[in-house]
Every structure is written in C-alpha cells, then in structure tokens.
Simulated scan of single mutants.
Amino acid sequence: MILYTLYENSYIDIAHLETLKDVHVYVNLTNRCPCACTFCLRQTKEMLESNSLWLEREPSVDEVIQEFQKYDLDDFAEVIFCGFGEPLERVDDVVQIAGILKLYRRDLPIRINTNGLANLIHKRDITPELKGRIDTISISLNAPDAKEYYELTRSRFGIESFQAMLDFTVLSKQYVPHVVLTVVDIIGSEKIAQCQSLCDELGVTLRVRPFEE
C-alpha cells in the first residue's frame, strides 16, 4: 500500500478507515535502504514475504498524487514519508510530492523519517531541496558513537556513516524548521543519556522511541 497509517499496533491502508479526521498519513515509496539494521523487522524473511508495506514496484509521483486526490487534505494531521525502505532514496520524488501537497494545503505538516544518509546515497548535499517543503525531519541516531552505530545499522557506506548522519543533521537545520534525532529505548538509559548530550551539542531534539517486537 502507498498511503497508510498506524492502527492498533499495525499498518492499515487509509482507505479502510471510517474517518480520516486528524489522521497521520504515511507515504510508502520504496523498499530500498542502504542499511541492514539488526533490529529492523525488514531483515526477517517473514516480513519480506508477507508484510503489506512491501512494494511489488515503486509508485510513480503521479500515482502517489492520485492516491492523495481521493481524500480531503484538510482532514490530515500530518503527512510522513516513511515506509518499508528509506524514503530519501527517492529524494527528487519526495520533494516533488511534498511541493504539490503544499500547493493544495500550505499549512499541511510534512515530515520525513530517515536514516540521514541521503547525502551519501546521492553524492551531493540534498538538504537545500527540502526548504519550504518539509517541516520536520526525524533522523535515526540509533547509537552514541560510530562503532556501535555501524554494528547496529550495517550501513553499506561503512563506519563513516555515523559522521555523515550527524553532518546531515546539522545541514538540515538550515532548511527544515524541526530537526529530531531518534533512538530506540532498548539501548538503555546510559546510552540514551549520551545521545541526549550529543543532541544538545548539535542543537536538536532527541526522541526516544519504544522498541516494537
């Protein structure tokens, strides 16, 4: 499915909701991701075969917009680019879709959930392209240091990925009003405190997410 939301600890196509009032709508664009995180459910065979977010093919920009045109954007509390893969693998399409949505509803909050490695993926700084289109960017910090980050994410870009993610965070602050780094609560209170200190240094917010089996 392309447009979905979280409902009773599961994913549901928004077409199946009785009401869309104040719904948070997630946009699923790709299965691709440069990481193979040890804690990510996408790594299990069961998820790859049966999870409804797995895309048989990537939807075009036109197909995504056609899905949005079925609904009243005024009902939505927020639109979030976040699916089975890394949304900024398709940064040009994310920017185009967000721009079109803003034309229809300028005050629509738009967020990207990302691993923060887009500049490595595309070999350029993509953060200026987010200006005026993205209101919040939520970046997976995962760990307080490069070694543990690489062990957890198994990024194809290697151990340098950690610093690249931090650099992306700082660059994003110039163009996106709200920049958030996230960790999962299973890393423990000591490492969470270290991550908080890092966020304080960078001048961004830390959000601790609950681990979901």
Score class of each variant (00 low, 15 high):
M1E: 07
I2K: 10
I2R: 13
Y4W: 08
L6D: 10
S10G: 15
E18P: 08
L20C: 08
K21E: 14
K21F: 11
Y26N: 03
V27D: 01
T30W: 03
R32L: 06
R32I: 02
R32W: 06
C33T: 03
C33G: 00
P34S: 07
P34K: 06
C37F: 10
C40D: 07
L41G: 00
L41K: 06
R42T: 06
T44K: 13
L48W: 09
L48H: 09
S50T: 11
S50Y: 07
S52A: 14
L53C: 05
E56C: 02
R57Y: 07
R57K: 09
E58N: 04
E58K: 00
P59E: 08
S60T: 15
V61E: 15
D62P: 00
E63I: 01
E63Y: 06
Q66S: 15
E67C: 03
E67F: 00
Q69V: 00
Y71R: 07
L73K: 01
D74A: 09
D74L: 04
D75H: 06
D75E: 10
F76I: 00
E78A: 11
C82M: 11
C82F: 08
G85A: 05
G85I: 01
R90K: 12
V91D: 05
Y104W: 14
Y104K: 15
Y104R: 15
D107F: 12
D107C: 07
L108A: 12
N113H: 13
T114C: 05
N115M: 14
L117C: 05
L117G: 05
A118W: 06
L120I: 05
I126H: 08
I126C: 08
P128V: 06
L130T: 00
L130S: 04
K131F: 14
K131D: 14
K131W: 13
R133T: 12
R133L: 14
I134G: 05
T136G: 03
T136N: 08
I137F: 15
P144E: 05
D145R: 08
D145Q: 09
A146D: 14
K147R: 13
K147C: 09
K147M: 10
E148P: 03
E148W: 14
Y149D: 09
Y150P: 00
L152D: 05
R154A: 10
R154S: 12
E160W: 07
S161R: 07
S161E: 09
A164T: 04
L166M: 13
F168A: 03
F168Q: 04
F168V: 07
F168P: 06
F168R: 06
T169L: 02
V170C: 08
K173M: 14
V179Y: 04
V179R: 02
V180H: 01
S189G: 06
A193F: 06
C195I: 12
C195H: 09
S197K: 15
D200N: 10
E201R: 15
V204A: 10
R209N: 14
P210A: 15
E212A: 07
E212N: 02
